[in-house]
Design a protein around this nucleic acid. Structure first.
Lengths: 230, 230
DNA sequence: TTCTTTACCTGACATTTGTCATAGTATTAC
DNA sequence: GTAATACTATGACAAATGTCAGGTAAAGAA
């Protein structure tokens, strides 16, 4: 596989690497390792000490945490352009999340040295990382509010809208990201059976439609109303 | 009231201001305004455009967000040393949270200019802010997992432990921070009645004890086990 | 003080959600 | 192609939770 240069990588426009200087990028490019990750494989696991960050080029990864009851909660879905593992590198502590590929992925592993030295020398970069993290934190707040105040049905309706808005749909309107029922349940924080039951209900009501393992949003407005409790 | 100097303020050891230089601190100190906030008063509300950040000197503030169903979800409790409103200033967007004093407070309002210029010039400061935000994000992840995977009873048990570990107890063992039942419910994401019911149950089981509006943890181990679903 | 308001508490009931069991369907391995 | 394995689906039931109603206790105002 060709070893593409970060300097020419469009992906970096989506993350904090855009604030790096030419020289810094060159240094990153020389030290980075591009990896292919198969669906279901883990990039890292809870408790690991990360020696760098992962920049997603293709595919989607679920970031989850195991709760004491033995079930996983998916905290975030990371796709093209997103950087994973930065918290561990910045705070120099073990990661609190597990990252598993939801579909086949291509990621670039960037050793932490390139990141930490730039963090100390280039305030623009640090500020840009800060802005992204600031955004993540805001999103996390929204998730907390939804988890605390909405019913499973509402969260599920929202999840479908989220999947479409963030990962898109094909020409026929099918969601580009196909999560298993179990993963969907793990995103909204419910039992797999409950998720399946409610999804069936959505189908009956004509809110969504499925074909094989693909699903399509039929009534956006309806889902939206449901999500807002109307 | 005397206008104390930030340079001498011990509070700042707890937050990112510790990474500011003497001159930067002097500039902050000259532009800051110390405010007394009475219990129940709002420091800022969801949607406000903040012109600075608030550094807590005394007291506790609840940071909450209104959900579409009309109920508040408390996302965080900020106490001595914590800085509120930084996200809004960093991302230059309207704040997504409302901050209300849970008891009488003293806070310092620091105009955003002092913050933003330092963010651009002092990488150490920016990095320190980043570290703190990184920590907040990790905590937010934990909250999400708890909300998604634990029952109300488990979350409530955890809330009591959290209140003691973060805000302490007096000589008799009573929690220093007394939240109303409604606020507790709003922290764990449940109806006030449910919270009251479960708290009564905790009392019957000897896990906690109350006297007036004060409460005391009697059986830490028991609460811990409960929180972990044992 | 008395009145008023707010916070706290409990019962009754409906709804939501989780769990266990079972079965069909798709996918993968051999 | 067949067997094994995962994923999806549904029923039945128990447990958890929310809602409504009504009550008591406490705190604040007049």
């Amino acid at each position: 596989m060709e070893h593409s240069r970060c300097e020419n990588c469009i992906i970096r426009q989506f993350n904090a690497l855009r604030a790096m200087s030419k020289e810094e990028l060159k240094q990153v490019s020389d030290s980075k390792i591009t990896k292919q990750v198969k669906k279901g494989e883990a990039l890292f696991e809870e408790g690991d000490k990360l020696n760098g960050v992962y920049c997603v080029r293709h595919g989607v990864s679920k970031l989850s945490k195991l709760s004491p009851n033995g079930k996983d909660q998916i905290v975030k879905l990371a796709s093209k352009g997103e950087v994973m593992g930065q918290r561990s590198v910045i705070a120099e502590e073990h990661t609190n999340l597990t990252a598993v590929a939801v579909n086949d992925m291509e990621v670039c592993f960037i050793p932490k040295e390139s990141i930490t030295t730039t963090l100390q020398k280039n305030p623009n970069f640090t500020l840009e990382v800060l802005r992204h993290m600031s955004h993540d934190l805001k999103e996390a707040d929204d998730v907390i509010v939804n988890m605390g105040q909405k019913t499973v049905k509402q969260r599920l309706a929202e999840a479908f809208l989220y999947l479409r808005n963030n990962f898109g749909e094909d020409q026929e309107g099918f969601l580009l990201l196909n999560l298993s029922r179990e993963d969907i349940a793990s995103v909204v924080g419910t039992a797999t059976e409950s998720a399946i039951r409610i999804i069936s209900e959505f189908k009956k009501k004509g809110l969504i439609e499925t074909s094989g393992k693909r699903s399509k949003i039929k009534d956006e407005k309806g889902l939206q109303n449901l999500a807002n409790g109307l």
